[in-house]
């Protein structure tokens, strides 16, 4: 027992020595205790943005939407940005948010609604840093937290209208991950759009209980097809499995979060694409005027943060296209109200 303790302490000492060796070369900013923004005299104005996101940058869904937005934003603004994907574990994400803030990133974005708690905790330690998270409206009354949300039901509604008109079998299938957040909002909007257009249509919704299980998403799509569906939609990154099955069966698909027509050019009728640049633009502009947070932003059809991208490879009948445009206009005008369950 005594020996054991001795070796343990030896081990710990060794580890500390190693850590100490690592220290001298990294000159200044270490971590949380010094929240001041690091000064970089030559490039003082270059804005540094960090993104922490739960999935991978190329997930064809939620994470890709912010990644694509950053790539676009970079072309028009003088920024430097960093990205940490696969931060599905809230603890890892919290460490990442804190570290980016400590490294002197001026805008730290946690792109996932599970990151709110962490942000609420971290933000007060870095009063000079702006934080942002979504999708939500909650800024916790903190002066340096922004929140953002997507009115995903709006695009869902538009596509629901189109789907209802395109369906010949009067059966439409939906493949969702778990019944929550952005996914549920989109699905509810879609269903509302279908039923507003044709209440006799049978819209069937499955939630497969996972964001990652492509095989089960594909099987859910097969089930919808076998049950007679000829138009389908779905949300989150595992839908690529379902889109593939639609392609095989010649059914139509409506996408959301990212542009999905590049994945299945003859199947995806339209995608609701999130343009988070709109939000980024707002936040950066506010920050330039010394407002570090405390506001929430929404992307929707009206402000161009959500765009319905019609796929040119799929021939959409003129009356469906007209109805879609009319619906978009109606939602923007406020003449159409979407009744969510």
């Amino acid at each position: 027992m005594k020996n054991l303790v001795k070796y343990l302490s030896l081990l710990l000492i060794f580890v500390f020595v190693l850590a100490a060796c690592g220290k001298p070369t990294a000159d200044e900013p270490s971590v949380a205790e010094e929240p001041e923004v690091v000064k970089e005299p030559e490039v003082a104005e270059k804005l540094r943005i960090a993104i922490v996101s739960p999935s991978e940058y190329n997930d064809f869904a939620f994470t890709q939407s912010i990644y694509d937005a950053m790539t676009l934003f970079e072309t028009t603004h003088d920024i430097e940005w960093a990205f940490s994907g696969m931060m599905f574990n809230v603890d890892d994400a919290a460490a990442a948010l804190r570290d980016y803030a400590a490294q002197g990133y001026q805008l730290v974005i946690g792109h996932g609604s599970q990151y709110g708690s962490s942000m609420q905790e971290i933000a007060p330690d870095f009063p000079e840093t702006s934080f942002a998270w979504g999708t939500t409206v909650e800024t916790f009354g903190q002066p340096n937290i922004y929140a953002y949300e997507a009115a995903s039901h709006e695009g869902g509604y538009v596509m629901g209208v189109m789907a209802a008109m395109l369906s010949k079998t009067k059966v439409i299938g939906v493949v969702g991950p778990i019944e929550t957040g952005d996914a549920k909002l989109y699905v509810d909007g879609f269903v509302a759009g279908v039923l507003a257009t044709d209440p006799t249509i049978n819209v069937r919704v499955t939630y497969i209980g996972s964001f990652g299980d492509i095989a089960l998403a594909a099987e859910a799509a097969e089930t919808h097809l076998a049950a007679g569906a000829d138009v389908m939609t779905g949300t989150a990154q595992m839908v690529v499995g379902a889109i593939g099955k639609c392609e095989e069966a010649g059914a139509y698909w409506f996408g959301t979060q990212a542009e999905q027509s590049t994945f299945a050019p003859n199947t995806v009728v339209a995608s609701q694409v999130y343009h988070w640049e709109v939000v980024l633009e707002d936040m950066v502009a506010r920050r330039a005027k010394n407002q570090l947070g405390g506001e929430y932003f929404l992307i929707n059809l009206a402000n161009g943060g959500q765009v319905i991208a019609f796929n040119e490879n799929v021939t959409i009948p003129a009356e469906v296209m007209e109805a879609a445009q009319a619906t978009i206009q109606g939602i923007i005008d406020g003449t159409i109200t979407i009744n969510l369950p």
């Binding site: 069937r204 497969i208 209980g209 996972s210 859910a220 049950a227």
Partner: peptide, 22 residues
């Protein structure tokens, strides 16, 4: 059973999707 649970959801049989999935 996995196939069955998907059908249960597709046919709208009122069981929470989580229980169906398990």
């Amino acid at each position: 059973v996995n196939g069955l649970q998907l059908w249960i959801q597709v046919l709208g049989i009122p069981i929470p999707s989580e229980f169906s999935t398990m």
